[in-house]
């Protein structure tokens, strides 16, 4: 369980004014829950995720994972990055094994585990390729495999499919669902796509910008497993109701901040 209490962070903007990136955020992420976080750009959703990851400090409040205060990165968490963050000089296999290597797992063992994960994400046969030889979607499969390889309890995903084309994004969503359905870790998934948030999440956390706050948490009662019939899901009335509701809320936010920011980043 991830408990976020009173989390706040301000930083100085370029014009010298104080920008409230996060203001008094309270959030509880349940064990083995797939939580998606949706919001306009500048709402602090990525900032919050990186705080959970222990990568950036905050001003006030606390984050605890299973009762233990977050103080830097930890082995129970693994992150999937928006722009993949793959080592361009390393092979697919070495990239997937990177987290294990950092933990001192021996070469033979980490390569064996990496090979399994490469197969899981559908990249068997590409083990010796370098990231530059792969398409964006394949690169993010490597990023996902790298995170899964360290067997985290919490998977932190920062707009992982934001940088790939629509078709590929679709396949990656289905595959992520299939992987997660077999291995239910806690997932915090940042996105700026309503459809993605509803399709994947058990709950959708809707955030608003200036200051970054949680404006609503929406339950997604769609049946699981969802991976086998994503298309049918999208035609269901529950799905349309939830997305319509989210869209309404996003449009309200957009009207409030219309002159200063858009919805998609």
């Amino acid at each position: 369980m991830i408990e976020i209490r009173g989390l706040s962070k301000a930083y100085r903007g370029q014009d010298g004014s104080q920008v409230q990136a996060l203001a008094d955020v309270d959030l509880t992420v349940r064990d083995n829950e797939f939580l998606t976080v949706l919001g306009p750009s500048g709402c602090g959703k990525t900032t919050m995720l990186k705080m959970i990851a222990g990568l950036i400090p905050w001003d006030e409040g606390s984050i605890a994972i299973d009762g233990v205060e977050v103080d830097g990165p930890g082995p129970e968490r693994a992150m999937v990055f928006q722009n993949f963050a793959l080592l361009p000089w390393a092979t697919v296999l070495d990239n997937v094994a990177f987290g294990l290597e950092m933990r001192g797992v021996g070469k033979a063992e980490r390569h064996e585990r990496a090979r399994e994960l490469v197969t899981t994400v559908g990249l068997a046969g590409f083990e010796t390729k370098r990231p530059g030889e792969l398409s964006g979607g394949m690169q993010q499969r490597v990023g996902l495999a790298r995170a899964l390889a360290v067997q985290p309890k919490v998977l932190l995903m920062d707009e992982p499919f934001g940088a790939v084309d629509e078709q590929t994004r679709r396949l990656l969503q289905e595959e992520l669902l299939a992987i997660w359905e077999h291995n239910r870790v806690t997932v915090v998934f940042i996105t700026h796509s309503m459809e993605e948030a509803v399709l994947l999440g058990d709950r959708v956390v809707l955030m608003s910008a200036r200051p970054g706050q949680i404006s609503e948490i929406v339950d997604v009662p769609l049946e699981r497993p969802r991976s086998s019939d994503v298309g049918g899901l999208e035609r269901s009335s529950e799905y349309s109701e939830i997305t319509a509701h989210l869209w309404e809320r996003l449009r309200e936010m957009h009207a409030e901040h219309g002159r200063v920011g858009g919805i998609a980043s």
Binding site: T120, G122, A124, E133, L134, S135, M138, T168, L171
Partner: peptide
């Protein structure tokens, strides 16, 4: 295991 054919993207 996902087979490579299932991925629409090519290298």
């Amino acid at each position: 295991a996902r087979t490579p054919e299932r991925t629409s993207e090519s290298p």
